[in-house]
Amino acid sequence: MRTAVIAGASGLVGKELVYYLSGSPEYSRIHLLVRRQMENPGDKIIEHLIDFDQLVDFSLEERIDDVYCALGTTMKKAGSKDAFRRVDLEYVVTLAKRAKELGAHRFLVVSSMGADPKSMFFYNRIKGKMEKAIRKVGMETTIIVRPSLLLGDRKEKRFSEEFSAVLMKILRPLIPKKYRAVSAGKVAGSMYHMALTASPGLHILESNEIQDME
């Protein structure tokens, strides 16, 4: 049986990952890296309250198989480009490096449709730089998922995203699958499936592939 680490467990995709892994017979233990304790985390779950600025010092006394990274923020929540870069780029890359040092076999990360280190858009550029950096880490298996707009219940309300989600639902039949909004549960499910089935190497799932996955 496997042991997993989930970073970003309180977010949309992170919460769904906790659901999938805690109910899976493939995993005997799940370690959550969190800033604050979660409610009713489950029997298999061990929470680690950490300062993500000190992520380089994180360690476990047992073997790790899979590291799931669903870390991410928004410009509004981060407050500045530097703060956004720290969460969506630096924390993620540090986690990938630490995962390899701790002997993990697979690193799975949520990126974004349009990720490109040369993009004119700051968000996409940071995601692209993150992807480029984790590829260089040299994990046995690296799995990157690039969802479009995420659907799910958020703690904080984001008017622009809610409006976009409603609009995309109305226009769904006219929108190419790659650009359609995708549920956080579908993203988490695709990551779980890939962790169990993917061969060693680099795998990138675009949003349409995420939606097609059973």
Rank of each mutant, 00 (worst) to 15 (best):
R98P: 03
D43C: 00
A78E: 06
M38K: 13
A78N: 07
R29N: 10
I45A: 06
A96E: 07
A99V: 04
I50Q: 08
I50G: 08
I50M: 11
D88G: 04
K15I: 02
G79S: 03
L32A: 11
K100M: 08
L71R: 02
D51F: 01
V56M: 12
V13M: 01
S28Y: 10
L71N: 06
G42N: 03
G103P: 08
E90L: 12
G103V: 09
K76R: 15
E39W: 11
G14T: 05
T94M: 14
L33F: 09
Y20I: 11
Y20A: 11
F58D: 07
L12K: 09
Q54I: 02
D66V: 12
F58Y: 12
V92G: 04
Y91R: 02
C69E: 02
P41F: 09
D82E: 15
L89C: 04
M38I: 11
M38Q: 13
K77F: 09
K77I: 13
I30R: 04
L21R: 02
K44G: 10
K81I: 05
L12M: 14
D43M: 10
M75N: 05
L55Y: 06
I45C: 02
L55A: 07
L95M: 06
I64R: 08
A99H: 09
G72R: 08
A83R: 13
I64D: 08
D82S: 14
D65R: 08
E47P: 09
A99D: 07
A83F: 00
C69V: 00
F58H: 05
E61H: 11
F84P: 03
K77A: 15
L95N: 09
V34Q: 01
R86P: 02
L95C: 06
P41K: 06
L55C: 10
D51T: 04
A83L: 10
R63A: 14
L33P: 04
L12T: 06
D53H: 12
F52W: 01
A83T: 05
Y68I: 06
E90D: 14
T74V: 03
I46C: 04
L89D: 05
A104Q: 07
D88A: 00
I46E: 12
C69D: 06
D88P: 01
